[in-house]
Design a protein around this nucleic acid. Sequence first.
DNA 1: CTGTTAGCGCCTTCAT
DNA 2: ATGAAGGCGCTAACAG
Lengths: 329, 329
Amino acid sequence: MNIYDIAAESNTSISTVSRVLNNKPNVNPVVKKRVEEVLKKYNYKPSAIARGMVSKTMKSIAILTVDVRVSHYARTVYTIEQEFSKKGFNVFVCNIKDSKEECSKYIKILSEKQVDGVVLIGSIFSELIDTPENLRLIHDIPVVIANGTLPYPNFHSIMVDDRGAIRLMVEYLQKKNYQELFYVYDRETPSAEEKKKGFIEALKLSGVKNAEERIFKCEYGLEGGKAVVEQILASGVRPDALVFGEDITAIGAMKEWKRRGYRIPEDLAITGCNNLIETEICEPELTTLDNKPELQGKLCSDLLSEILEGKTGYGGVTINAELVVKKST
Amino acid sequence: MNIYDIAAESNTSISTVSRVLNNKPNVNPVVKKRVEEVLKKYNYKPSAIARGMVSKTMKSIAILTVDVRVSHYARTVYTIEQEFSKKGFNVFVCNIKDSKEECSKYIKILSEKQVDGVVLIGSIFSELIDTPENLRLIHDIPVVIANGTLPYPNFHSIMVDDRGAIRLMVEYLQKKNYQELFYVYDRETPSAEEKKKGFIEALKLSGVKNAEERIFKCEYGLEGGKAVVEQILASGVRPDALVFGEDITAIGAMKEWKRRGYRIPEDLAITGCNNLIETEICEPELTTLDNKPELQGKLCSDLLSEILEGKTGYGGVTINAELVVKKST
DNA sequence: CTGTTAGCGCCTTCAT
DNA sequence: ATGAAGGCGCTAACAG
């Protein structure tokens, strides 16, 4: 059932049908009504593909994320999807998993599908997507990166001040009189790198000399956090506060310290980052940083929307994380 | 840059260009090479929309879920997306949030975009989607429901035996000699209803008479779980085991019981459902049921794929949850 | 092996 | 207010 069939059945032309379909003016009310009845009778539904052929858009965008199962990515994805849904867009969600090949595969197919825009969630994408081939394929599609930057005309960013966030945390701990601060990171993303820098900066600012040495690396996750405890103890240092780059890893470590008889925060303070629900479940509840994934999503949506609407002069926004003090410090 | 431009530039016809584009036989290697060079030179990229116009498919599917931020939905979504990505499909993710209007809005636009298939994640969808209008719009699109059924020819199901899951839990608790079992539910979805039935059935089977009265209702979430404790105590009953329909709610309740001085599991056993990571973080770790969201996703993908490939005779599969005993029982 | 032609379903001038 | 005709970019059938 296409527009021709409807036109025939209504004794009119496809132009007129098209007009009533799109609520355009200059159509006789009587004819309009007749057409609408036929439309209903045959349960006509316009083909978005055919429309897309003419309009050059399917009203869809794509979100590329590392893994939507990660809570804060899911929260950002959710917000963006809801925002664009309001505007009549649908959202492709793509899980890239750190792989450059996957990323290129998706970019190719999405560019052929002519998505109206792309949102990259996760600082890692500033590395994953930066190949000549990818850039050529999407040079005419606006891209918004959440927490990353790339110097191409169609790329725009919403930044999160990860460095400042950790600095905030360090300053808070120092104010509470913790002296022996150490940092534990797991991932190697640009964002994680920024956090590490923030830690070092903050220590240096307060006169600590060997800041770069006060850093441990472990695997991501509960198990990674548990494992790093042994590593810390073996190294001989005696921290009174551990700053983690991720909540989950911090929680893993906390469990292990407790298992070994340490009291948190009396013997050792621990802090995380992301303000996951898990930080309210562990005991003691984890002091953490809220980097506002929903706000990230909202700002990414707004930015991309403005670009799509042809607006100009949107400036870079930076999100500042918020310190959330709970019971582990 | 379209296929005509490429043909002109390569001194051949669009048919030949189309042939090399699609790796079809019967094209002179010399010509093929020439065309490929032009393709590369102009960085040609075929229009999936135009192709879709002919083939009637954009190679995309849609997942409708209540809220992708909910961990087990995210896990199912992830699996489906990865499976379909392998086959060259892209996946629209739609957050419906319990709203019939939202659901209809999405169904309309997705049907116009001619998605190849739809996956409904969450038992609530057997209610949300069941309107004449929706059914008319997608009567020609295969639908797979995760954990729900609907008696329409294009609807297919992957079921989870929620009832059996809770029965399993009750039997386990009884075997451990818990006597005073009570059930706490929060949601009112068909799935939650099944769980409740499972609880009642199991109790009746073991000779408990007033099974239907051993049930409490609360709000979803940590706070809901905390709040129900007061309610239980006020009611005068004295449970020695509480079976919850959701992990998060169980964890909230556990925190509150502990706050009031109860020891878990010595004074009271508590169990959840979903095997979230949170069940490993709370203390004591929560005994729960694993209803295998990834497996759900895989089976939904397989089923939908088979339908799309025109296979027939796929039978209904049912997933049995697995008891995961931890420390709270 | 190659090229011509006719759609796919819709929107959009441009006449009338 | 209405209709005819062209075009969006591609595939497929058919003829050479």
